[in-house]
Design a protein around this nucleic acid. Structure first.
Lengths: 222, 222
DNA sequence: GTGTATTATGTGACTAAGTTACCGAATCAA
DNA sequence: TTGATTCGGTAACTTAGTCACATAATACAC
């Protein structure tokens, strides 16, 4: 499938653009592949283009001065990377890091082209508004669980979610990674996993967490 | 000053609307006063109009099942209440509470009128995007300080901010209110204020916190 | 004004979470 | 195979949040 078709499928807002504008996007934009681990945006950097995600996954997270991480949300096919778009809009530094989590294909629209072609396009603006709103809600949920929920509940919920998403009872993940997801310290996760193993709910190995008793986890997480 | 002039001044995006559309807004919308304490939106409610804030102040906060509060941001003259706008866009329940903090004048645009008049207006969409982005950033800052900062630093910073904003060294506020701002428990605030008084940085009274040593607070908050 | 209700604050004891500082075991790379 | 690196375990300690109160200040009713 050619790039234009893929873009139109993943970003329906683009379908309502005039043919000539669509051609401009394709001609002036560029498709790029980025391997897992690539950092797309660091705090305070300015991005010279608007990136659309065609495949793969990005993770957007905050980094504390002390080195602790906290995942805010992920972006996948059909998403645009807010981090880059938004800091353009206001001139602020976007205070988070966007990193490729699974090898991704990105379509970069140079900012000049973006201004000319998309900036006066209502369906695109609606797409942006919906995206922003979604991120906002997601971050609020994170905020809510961080301030009001206990870590053990959040951990149980995270394990269940992850296990369901992957359709497996055995997760391949380090304690460090879990801590980054939940915005806490590795030691805390190790202790709690240890406790859950002690209860017979989990089996642990290096880079491996196996869920033995999902019901117990569900009950804890309510 | 008449309402249309005030609207145009506070919401410059409206100035680029056609005259007839502006007239429709004024004729079909309605101006309302709401005293401090009025709850505009509760979790899960749907708002039949888009509210623009002409004066006064709203506070948007989250409420935990356990009754703890956490202020997310405030909206004042020239802002629109995202809570109501956004849940319209996506159909989701907006997961926060909007309450009038200082008696406010609000201009309500019925949703039908909004769709007809503003939904295809680019400057208005840009205004919405900017607003959403601002809220998003603000909430991220809250999230960052909650997860990565110690409460005593956040408290010191809050006291200094508030004192500067009001141009006074004596704040009229309860420990309970401070706890709601910072998303922590009243006892924690009481203890820390007590500690700061012990250090000679503050003088405390009922509903009263007086800053004696702003430099010490600044140093703590870095 | 006086008593009573309400609101605000103080505090101790306890639990949960985050930090510091290690250790050793598993894995990788040369 | 050996040295380095990553990963997990754990103890001791600090910070934060919860629970259960006591006490103090103010409001208000009469």
């Amino acid at each position: 499938m050619d790039t234009l078709t893929r873009l139109r499928t993943l970003f329906p807002a683009l379908q309502t653009l005039e043919e000539s504008a669509q051609r401009t996007l394709i001609e002036q934009g560029s498709l790029a592949r980025r391997p897992a681990g690539t950092v797309l945006m660091r705090q305070g950097e300015v991005c010279p283009h608007v990136p659309l995600v065609l495949s793969g996954a990005l993770r957007v997270y905050k980094l504390s001065p002390g080195g602790r991480e906290m995942t805010l949300y992920r972006a996948g096919a059909g998403d645009t990377c807010l981090v880059s778009v938004a800091c353009r809009l206001t001139g602020d530094d976007f205070p988070a890091i966007a990193q490729v989590e699974e090898a991704a294909e990105l379509f970069f629209i140079p900012y000049a082209v973006y201004s000319r072609v998309l900036d006066s396009h209502i369906p695109w603006k609606d797409f942006l508004i919906a995206t922003l709103y979604k991120r906002f809600s997601e971050s609020l949920q994170v905020l809510e669980s961080v301030t009001f929920d206990r870590v053990d509940r959040r951990l149980a919920a995270w394990l269940l979610n992850r296990s369901e998403a992957q359709g497996k009872a055995t997760l391949s993940v380090t304690h460090e990674q879990i801590a980054a997801e939940l915005g806490t310290a590795r030691e805390v996760i190790s202790r709690m996993l240890g406790e859950m193993r002690h209860q017979g709910w989990l089996e642990l190995g290096r880079r491996r967490v196996r869920i033995l008793d999902p019901e117990a986890l569900r009950e804890l997480s309510e």
